[in-house]
């Protein structure tokens, strides 16, 4: 099992109170590497991710981050430490630099160019209208924008689902680079090939409950065939 917890979830329930999507999630998520969250459609993967930066709150149970209750942390403070990238990159009006200034109003052109290069984009994109970026560029720009708040964890909700294979590989490479630099990545995916390429740890959610959690190699021999199918375990 994974060691060293960042987020700890205890009997967490989430979604509409009358029909929760997540019903009994208890797990300690690692504070390093890439943890991929897998599960069938509607199993609550994205719901879980939204709890971790408090875009939503659970209807039951408790979540802590480094032993501090999430409910006690001011959401803006938490969200600057726990960055998020979404399936559809939310672009703000104006240039790439204007987008960066939403995350950090003081950001200089030099820092902007540096962070663009950090995510593998040309520094020349800084003055480009964000609306003209390609899907892959937009998603990497969003990662760069999130990095401006200097997060310690990055939540990624199927960020490559709408991208072509080249852009997908580039964004995955970026996630690996950030994980190697010490930013823990929690990545939702339904793509088994991607799970194989990316995951250090896997959290499998089925029917709103934790079906399995552990190192990818451990889960390859998991007793539940649904779990083995979700991670694309070799036959």
């Amino acid at each position: 099992m994974a060691s060293s917890t960042g987020f700890s979830l205890l009997e967490v329930a989430a979604g509409p109170a009358e029909a929760p999507i997540l019903t009994d999630i208890t797990v300690d998520l690692p504070e390093h590497g890439i943890t991929v969250i897998v599960g069938p459609s509607g199993s609550g993967k994205s719901t879980l991710l939204r709890l971790l930066n408090r875009l939503d709150d659970p209807v039951g149970g408790a979540i802590t981050w480094r032993d501090e209750a999430l409910s006690a942390m001011p959401p803006p403070t938490l969200r600057r430490q726990v960055g998020t990238i979404f399936q559809r990159a939310p672009l703000f009006e104006g240039s790439v630099l204007d987008n960066f200034r939403v995350a950090d109003p003081e950001v200089s052109g030099e820092r902007g160019r540096h962070v663009l290069e950090h995510v593998g984009l040309s520094a020349g994109l800084l003055d480009r209208d964000a609306a003209t970026l390609s899907g892959g560029e937009a998603q990497r720009m969003c990662v760069a924008r999130a990095l401006l708040t200097r997060p310690e964890v990055l939540l990624a909700d199927e960020p490559t689902a709408a991208l072509d294979i080249d852009a997908r590989i580039a964004v995955e490479g970026l996630a690996r680079q950030l994980a190697d630099e010490g930013i823990a990545v929690l990545w939702v995916s339904h793509d088994t090939d991607q799970v194989r390429r990316l995951a250090d740890h896997v959290l499998a959610i089925v029917d709103g409950k934790v079906a399995a959690f552990g190192h990818l190699s451990e889960l390859d021999t998991h007793a539940d065939p649904i779990v083995r199918r979700l991670i694309g375990a070799p036959a």
Binding site: R79, G83, T84, A146
Partner: peptide
């Protein structure tokens, strides 16, 4: 909604996130 939550996720207050 996506754009507003995008701003919230960057640590903006609700007021600032909805301002535009």
């Amino acid at each position: 909604r996506g754009v507003i939550e995008g701003r919230l996720a960057l640590g903006l207050s609700a007021r600032d996130a909805f301002q535009p």
